[in-house]
Design a protein around this nucleic acid. Structure first.
Lengths: 233, 233
DNA sequence: GTTTTCATGTAACCCGTTACATGATTCA
DNA sequence: TGAATCATGTAACGGGTTACATGAAAAC
């Protein structure tokens, strides 16, 4: 009766909304597909999945189970056929789960502007209504501006007493924040000018819309081209 | 018999090395003076101080105690005068504590390149030997480059299946990391060319050396001026 | 004289990790 | 056939927060 992680729960629901998956795969997507996400461990993920099932938002389905004994009878036949042969468990979002996620998507508390929370929200902007996107972006921005002011103030108070390294660290920190603010400005600007491509209809299914529908994101240098000598493996 | 926080412990020792302080003030310095540090709560700080005292690295000293009972007898006189009147407790680094901190400063494990840990290390570069600074900076850089490669790889694998927002998030994330790498490059460069201003003598007292001693830090725009026309536009 | 700010502390909880235990599948 | 990878899980612990309790000094 606990494990209400917020961000993990949110991300899991969001990923499963796109397509059913088993835990192992889910975890990898958590680490890679979404931008900022740090690596959640299995010790976190699996219990979380359990509670989501208990809440009725997910159901477990047998994955590619070796349902009928495969041709190779090599394996020692399990003493008791009941003693659940462990197999892949595929998790699928239930209708209630979908509804719940939709609700999470739409309400914007001040938690939503904190670092990791914000990244999670942004990662699912594709399924978020425009109005909400705006609120989140603007909330995040003012959160950062607030932070900047504090930094400036504290720096003004103490700059004489600090050595060069501490100063440089603060300078770099502030510059990072300023940079994110500029980024948000661009995003907000292009949300404002872009057409409202995600209508408010609750019946929009995800998945498609890879047709460049997301209108007005600012153009940036594409640093992801095939990169001839990439290979990675 | 626990509470070995690493980063908090390190920062506390480092700050107290510069001058004795009581907990309340210590906490504020943790939040502001040092660049990146997030706000530790009292619930973390005070117990930590206790264990540091128990380890013999700090001693508690009475602060500006109202040693003799103040004139206002309004308060219910404490039943037992022994039941310690609570007063400011000033923490001071012991010789062993100093030694311990010195040791922490000098050994560079791979923990030292992680985000928060690195920031803490950097914040005390003023008391760190040049050789160690180099190892930390280079370690951090290769840590980040490693991370970059993973991001690039995963992006190359999945870019077709992702919507524009997720893509943008990843792009921005990568750009941030790239930016930090460039920063590190500058720092490393200026460490290399700068004079070795922090000699290896173990007897160097901190505090002074505000005489521009830190030689070669790269020059940046001073973004702390009153700044007449900026307005974060 | 009351409200703020300074100042110290503790207990309950939360979110997550590590290290471990188990077993199936794939591939050299 | 044995190693690597896929896959699921749990118990113990770690490091931190929140909310609370307490009280002195300063500011209004």
């Amino acid at each position: 009766m606990s494990r209400r992680s917020g961000i993990l729960e949110f991300a899991v629901l969001g990923l499963l909304r796109e397509s059913p998956m088993h835990g192992y795969e889910l975890r990898k997507r958590l680490n890679t597909s979404l931008g900022i996400f740090r690596a959640f461990s299995y010790g976190t993920l699996y219990p979380c999945l359990k509670t989501l099932v208990a809440s009725g938002w997910l159901i477990e389905e047998p994955g590619s189970v070796p349902a009928s004994p495969p041709a190779t009878s090599r394996g020692v036949a399990p003493a008791s056929s009941l003693a659940g042969r462990r197999a892949k468990i595929v998790y699928r979002l239930t209708a209630e789960g979908k509804e719940h996620f939709e609700e999470l998507l739409s309400h914007t508390g001040p938690d939503a502007w904190e670092d990791e929370h914000f990244a999670a929200r942004f990662a699912f902007f594709g399924q978020t209504e425009r109005e909400v996107r705006m609120r989140v972006l603007e909330g995040r921005r003012s959160r950062l501006e607030e932070r900047l002011e504090k930094m400036r103030a504290s720096l003004a108070r103490t700059r004489e007493r600090l050595d060069d390294y501490t100063l440089e660290l603060q300078r770099h920190g502030m510059e990072s924040v300023e940079r994110e603010v500029r980024w948000l400005n661009e995003l907000i600007e292009s949300e404002r000018s872009g057409r409202d491509q995600r209508r408010s209809s609750p019946e929009s299914s995800p998945q498609q819309d890879t047709t460049g529908a997301t209108g007005g994101l600012p153009r940036h240098r594409d640093n992801t081209r095939p990169d001839p000598s990439d290979d990675t493996k």
